[in-house]
Every structure is written in C-alpha cells, then in structure tokens.
Design a protein around this nucleic acid. Structure first.
Lengths: 189, 189
DNA sequence: ACTCTAGTAGACAGATCTGTTCACGTCAAC
DNA sequence: GTTGACGTGAACAGATCTGTCTACTAGAGT
C-alpha cells in the first residue's frame, strides 16, 4: 500500500459505497477499513468518530447532487427544465448501485429530529428544493415555492418506490405527474 | 408482573413503539425486554430471532393499515374516495408518535432486495396499492392500475417529506396533486 | 395434592462494535 | 543523513449485541 492517493478521500468513497449497500448501523468501521485497506488509526486521525465519517459522506454526496442538478437546470432555462431532475433519477434507477437515497435512509436510521445526521439529511432535501424554486421563480413567482415542494415530494416518492419495489419506471411516472403539475399551474412557455 | 395479558402481543407492541422511535438496528433486544418487563427466555419462546420479531411487528402493522384503508374506501365508493388515504396520512402526521413509515425505514435498513424484511416491506406497499386499484377499477378499468401506482408514489413522497422536514402539510399537498390526477384522468363522477 | 404451563432472573457464550494507544516502518524534503 | 509527517498492524478496553441455558416460582386444572 502506502500509495500517494489521499487516504481521507478514499475512506469517504469506500464508506459511501458500503453505507449504500448495507446501511449505516449495519456497516462497521472495521469493514470500511478492511475494504479501504486503511488502518484504524488513520481513520480516527481524519474523522473524530463514525458519525463524523457519515456526515463527511453525506456532505460529499450533497455537493455532488447539488452541482449536478444546477448544471442540468442551467442548460435549460425554460420552466419545464426542472423536469431534468426526473431524468437524472431515471438513469440513477437503472444502475446496479441503486439502493435508495442516502439521505432518506440516513433520516430513517437516525430518526430523532434533533440528531445532526437527521437534520443534515433534511437540509439536503430543502436545498435541492430551493434550486428548483430558483429555477421556477422568474416564470411563476407566486407559485414557485409550492411547485418546488411538490416536485421534491414527487422525487422522494419516486426514489422510495424504486427502492422498495424495484419499480424502475418510477422516475418516468413522477415526471409525467410533474409535467401535468406545471401545465396546470400554467408555469410553462 | 405475571399479568394475564398475553406476553407475545405486549412484546410486539413494545417493539413496534421502540423500532419506530429508534430504528431497527439501533433498538437492542435488551431494551425491548426492559421496557416490556418481559424476560429474554419468553421472547425467544415466542420468536425465533430478532428478525422474526421485526416481521411480526410489520405483519401486525400491515394488517392494521390494510384494514383501516379498506374501511375508509368502503365508506365512499366514489372514485375520489381513494383520497381518503391522504386524510389518513394527514392525521397520522399530526401525531407526536410520527417517525416515518415502518416499511420504508425497514426497507432502508435491510437494503438487500432478497432480504425477507425488505421484501415484506415492498409487498406491503404493493398490497396497499392493490386496494386503491380495486376501488378505482369499476370507474376507470384501463387506468386504475397506473393511477393506483401513482397514488402510492404520492403517499410515499408525502411520508418521506413529513419525516425528513417536519412538513406536516405534506399529506394535504399530496392530496391536491392526487385530486388533479384523478380529474385529468377523468376518473370521477 | 400434583402436575403442567408459563413465566422469572440472571449468568453465560461468543461475536461485534467504537474508539485508543503504542511501537514500528517508509519516504520525501531539507 | 536526519527529521518529521504519515501511515501501518495489532493489541486492548469497554460496551453492547443476539441468543442459550439453568434453576426457580406462581398459578390453574384436574
């Protein structure tokens, strides 16, 4: 070992994969270390605790998703550009690494509303919704907030449906509903 | 102790409450026993394992929800009678014991698709959807299946939204979307 | 009275969990 | 070449986990 690659990042990536495959409580530190080929002392040099590692994983994923969504939205300024979020979901659902949403599952495992992890997961959803709202605001300022919330509800519904019932078409269905929603709100061009 | 009340049922009820409050992995057998005031030998007389206890909890909840929904549906045979499911969600969200859906969270913690718990949780959602479909079928036989699936997607989206962001209005929003969906499908009277 | 059932408390096994610590290795920069 | 940063492996502590087992007790039915 002793490769040049930064251990910290490698730990985050490995933990991300294992948390996805197995869940948070069910994934022990030792397994992460074994799969990453990193010693325990190194992990605790970079992260104060398992909770800190979980938060680092969620933070990275949060940044990735936020950036990816923003990029999609920028490429289509029309109101219906927000539907891109469902296309992103759709391709995600087709992958073999799909085990549901990190944030939904984290929120479920750390269920106390005041828990740091629970709140971070909720904040992620809120921020994703805010991106959608910002995109819609110029076109329908009075309804943008509500529509954005409804879209996020559809996003989460699609994720859970795909996760629980292997319904790989859930994103396409949610997209249809969302399209009707925009149309009905007359928030189109 | 040594009350007449059946220990088995009491264990299921206690486990149900604790699993809700804390999650499945995070709730140890010992805590359930202490809270229920029941000895460990008794638990393992009634249940082969913790997994069996979890399944018993989910089975009971499944029966309760199925029955409650069926009752609501029977009381309003109109197509829009299905919207009752969102009214049920709404009153659930207002309670202090709301910690999200047992089945969604179980599906997240036991994420392997072939896991017994995971599959049971998925089957629950499927059966709930089937109830909605049966209700709609007489009114719009061609679309009843798809509409029912869409409604379940909205149900799950509302639950996750309420759980992650304490959005107590999620059920009302989902109901609005569902209503528009029925209207658009011309599945009303 | 006797027996059967259902329960108790609690010790125990063995695994696994997070987190700490320590002695040692490697390698690049200066 | 020496230093210092970074990492390793492994032992260890202490908690907690599921599940088993034994010895005992209370009560109900016959």
């Amino acid at each position: 070992m002793t490769q040049k690659a930064p251990r910290k990042q490698h730990l985050i990536d490995t933990a991300f994969r294992l948390f996805n495959e197995r869940g948070y409580h069910a994934t022990g530190i030792d397994l992460i270390l074994a799969e990453a080929g990193v010693s325990k002392a190194t992990l605790y040099k970079h992260f104060a605790s398992k909770e800190a590692l979980i938060l680092a994983v969620l933070e990275q994923r949060h940044r990735q998703l936020l950036e990816a969504l923003q990029q999609q939205l920028d490429s289509d300024p029309r109101p219906q550009g927000v539907l891109a979020v469902f296309d992103m979901l759709d391709s995600w659902f087709q992958t073999v690494e799909f085990f549901g949403c990190n944030f939904i599952r984290a929120s479920g495992e750390y269920s106390a509303p005041e828990d740091t992890i629970h709140r971070f997961a909720g904040a992620h959803k809120t921020k994703m919704g805010r991106l959608l709202e910002m995109h819609l605001r110029p076109h329908c300022p009075e309804q943008s907030s509500q529509i954005a919330n409804d879209l996020m509800l559809l996003v989460d519904g699609a994720i859970v449906t795909a996760q629980m019932r292997q319904a790989k078409d859930a994103a396409k269905r949610a997209r249809m509903i969302a399209q009707a929603l925009l149309l009905e709100a007359r928030c189109t061009d």
